[in-house]
Design a protein around this nucleic acid. Structure first.
Lengths: 184, 184
DNA sequence: CGGCTGTTACCGAACGTTCGGTATAGCGAA
DNA sequence: TTCGCTATACCGAACGTTCGGTAACAGCCG
């Protein structure tokens, strides 16, 4: 059976964000993908590091071409645009039942390439979010703080939900995100 | 050289929250503590799992007997009590340069005992914080939400600071914590 | 068409290394 | 001498990685 690259990356994403970089063994990856370890090296000659980087790159692309797209649609009210983003986040994190990729891949002895990729993804997210908030009439600095705080809340809520084994905290944060970004 | 249990646990705490549970190898632990592996097994016959549980237990004790103590001192204004807690948090996380233990130890295939300990620590923190906020005159439910949000912000800020390699986001969250808990 | 060649996708079996963990002996203090 | 503790040496298992090879398929030539 020939698996598409996309199918493999979806599975890899799940494994990495469940176990973290160190915890995701090749044996576990092989079982999850249905490919033998040697076959994984055919797709990713750079080994586990390349797999993690491919996952992170796909996450950045997803952020850029899916999650952040509604933010740029200036024909909609700003609140609807933010709401559309939260719906994408809810799908990606399955209402808080999946852990955060940025968290899982930034812990431990992750390579410098991976470190830079996680930082770039975070900056992309924060930058676009701040731009959208600023376009709603807030000052640059205020918008940047609101964006940073929104991302902080999402990351934190994913941890709280994971530890408590309860998706409610994450769902609450998502629901309050538009007000948090645009209110007051 | 004879190391005290306390010294060892301090070092173990650092190693675990830097590398996570899986990433913290016994070789790394041995080097960091200056003890040979056999010596570690003399102190912790249960192996790495017991080390992590001892670290988590000490963190819970620290939370109970240090960080949360000022919250209970009803002779001080509530805002000063919260401020005292943030100072303890700032010290423990070294202004955001150290990662979160709850995060590092709750990722991956951590054992069920460790899972329960992280959840208990989180509940202890949230419960006492909510009680303090409620004592300041807020309704039970409102206080619980504020406490949960405060903890969410701290966890999230530690991740953001770690990824960006910049302690400023964590410091900002800490500085705004009293207002976040008691304001508006 | 049949036969040859190259490419792609995959796998079983092993590689050397490191993992968590253990047996045993040595050391200093009481 | 005994006891608490540490170090050396070692173990089987699992780790990430590599090798040799098979099956399937396409393209090209005769």
């Amino acid at each position: 059976m020939v698996l598409s690259e996309e199918q493999i990356l979806v599975t890899l994403t799940d494994v990495f964000r469940q176990y973290g970089y160190e915890g995701a063994s090749l044996a576990a990856i092989a079982e999850a993908t249905g490919l033998a370890k040697a076959s994984l090296y055919h797709r990713f000659p750079g080994g586990k590091a390349q797999m993690a980087e491919a996952v992170m790159d796909r996450a950045r692309v997803w952020l850029d071409t899916v999650a952040l797209v509604p933010l740029r649609d200036q024909s909609l009210p700003i609140r609807d645009r933010v709401l559309a983003m939260t719906r994408q986040l809810d799908a990606f994190y399955q209402s808080g039942e999946k852990s955060c990729l940025l968290d899982a891949l930034s812990i431990g002895e992750a390579g410098s390439a991976l470190r830079r990729m996680t930082r770039d993804a975070l900056d992309l997210w924060a930058g676009e979010l701040a731009a959208a908030v600023a376009a709603a009439g807030y000052g640059e600095e205020d918008a940047a703080r609101r964006a940073e705080r929104a991302i902080t809340l999402v990351q934190g809520a994913l941890i709280v939900s994971r530890i408590k084994g309860d998706p409610a905290p994450f769902r609450r944060v998502l629901a309050e995100l538009p007000e948090q970004l645009l209110g007051g």
